[in-house]
Design a protein around this nucleic acid. Sequence first.
DNA 1: TGAAGCTACGTTATCGTTATCGTTCTTTCA
DNA 2: TGAAAGAACGATAACGATAACGTAGCTTCA
Lengths: 354, 354
Amino acid sequence: MDAKPPLRSPTVTDVAAAAGVSPMTVSRVLNGRGGAGEETRQRVLEAAQALNYRPNAFAQSLKSDRSNTVGIVVPDIVNPFFPEIIRGAELVARPAGYTLLSCNVVEDPEREEEVLGTLLDRRVDGVIICSARLDEERLLRAIAPHRAVVLINRSVAKRYAGTIEVDYRAGVEAAVSSLIAQGRRRFVFAAGPAYSHGGRKRREGVEAVLSRHGLALVHDLSCTPDLQGGIELAGKLVPRAGEIDAVICYNDLIALGLMKPFETAGISVPDQVAIVGCDDIPAASLVTPPLTTLRIAKQDLGEMAMRMLLDRIAGRNAQQGIVIEPDLILRSTTPSDLVQEEAGSKLELAAARI
Amino acid sequence: MDAKPPLRSPTVTDVAAAAGVSPMTVSRVLNGRGGAGEETRQRVLEAAQALNYRPNAFAQSLKSDRSNTVGIVVPDIVNPFFPEIIRGAELVARPAGYTLLSCNVVEDPEREEEVLGTLLDRRVDGVIICSARLDEERLLRAIAPHRAVVLINRSVAKRYAGTIEVDYRAGVEAAVSSLIAQGRRRFVFAAGPAYSHGGRKRREGVEAVLSRHGLALVHDLSCTPDLQGGIELAGKLVPRAGEIDAVICYNDLIALGLMKPFETAGISVPDQVAIVGCDDIPAASLVTPPLTTLRIAKQDLGEMAMRMLLDRIAGRNAQQGIVIEPDLILRSTTPSDLVQEEAGSKLELAAARI
DNA sequence: TGAAGCTACGTTATCGTTATCGTTCTTTCA
DNA sequence: TGAAAGAACGATAACGATAACGTAGCTTCA
């Protein structure tokens, strides 16, 4: 129990010496490949146990050309949307014998490229990329050398990657439709990062419904997809509050960022201005008034992505693209005759769209 | 640009062949060790570029016995406290040439042990462990084989690991003192995981101040350190609301979890019951009323931990233990004659304690 | 009884990199 | 002019694990 940091960890050779056999026999025993006598097997196992032997993953990977490691790249680990995805992915990866390497890109395309390179150096068996911010060409170049790729919220030619997309467009259409039904006409779209694929889908959803009603966006403003972005955006919107009556936000963080400044400025939500978020992060239901938003099954998303990735690594490219539908969660930042009960309330989108 | 997944990635030998030199020369050039002629250098660099060569990290690690990888273990990546720490750690690790392997333990000691083993298999050069949940003996056994270890919020004999601790005890004392000054007498401690070291410190802080005033805890209840835990705890506290006038919570999530049920039950916060959280996660300032809490510089914490770890990896064990002080952020879940302004308000603890 | 077949191992070679040492060729200066 | 020093590079071996093959000893049955 006197644990001093061991200068060198034991190798197969050490175990072999201790058990009085060849390294190969140790390998055979430890990998359960058979071809070793029962008595020898016991001796080897005891020796390995005694030395606290652990196979060197580098040596194994070098030989086998498989790292049993998969990567997941997220734009910002501090955004509550992503940790749940990571958790889902990990929940699937670990029982399958894979270690998950999660990489944070801090919303920086350069970093995204760099990180995909680092993952390549580590010879990951596959990568999941969430909300890739790179442009098409650089993205393709970055994923090309990878053995298996799954993209979340980004589409790309099928041969390059599997995709899982949230049908933001439909979700946003449901939200906007519901607001129009309640008489709102003067919409603002609080877009997130300009290069976001999901952001474009959301905008399409807003514009589609508006144009169907002969309306157009009053403002289309971009900001960073975090609380600070929402706060800054509020600075621009407050002076023009009279011109608007609804804000559709790229995500919940932006929406939450808007709320305090609006309250301070005496802009009442939802009476004067309605606010809709996206993602349904935990904080959305905690604030006052609780935030109307699009719920996405984040952990499921991570699990599905990882299952798809493992399939692709194994050469089974059965599922090429999955689309999941968000649920419109009506809370109190949008006016409503019937605000849903909080517990377990879900309005299936399919139903919500006409 | 026709990017089909390459069956085999190029090796030094491929580059060497392309440049008409030996593999050794390629290695020399790419590692900038000198000992290569300028003209040769150019040829090699061009060849490497053309083949899109990337050194195999496994082979390098196998030779050098260094992985340039460090691990960080957190109890729950979905708890907003931890992603900020991870981000801080990554911000320091990457420029130093290290890849960060972050592992999620889902509040399970078994998993913690398993994960430390996995990291060992990957031959990480060091590990940061946040809020280790393992008991002393198993923790020591688990960290012993690691080359360098830094513990966040857990102490252990100096020879085994560097430590960074938040002085929760002092922080909680400040919070409780301030409540007592305002006439609160009937305290509940909403403890988190029973095996949490930081939790014990917090309890000590509460009890120290209470006993100084001849008081004792009315209830000492444990729950999971997440929203759900707070909600469940509220179920127990609501019926006994008459017996209490202040709840000190293990963390903000528990505190936030209490608030909605309290509101629903007509228990007014802070008039009837004051609530104090811990961590100052973003949601704490967004809810109504905003949550009084202990602010911890989470990203700094991650950065410091990583710097300490890199020092230890390099053999510089200068800093053995660091203690950081939390700031008591007085918001509106505690009564106050002078509620602090939100922007930039910090009450330095040293000052807050008498 | 002896050839074939099987089991239980050991030997060798290999994955990709790089430290070490050796070789060749050029330069330098007594 | 020749010995010594240095520069530029190649050959070899090793990191740890294991696939492929080799071999010794035993069993089996014509």
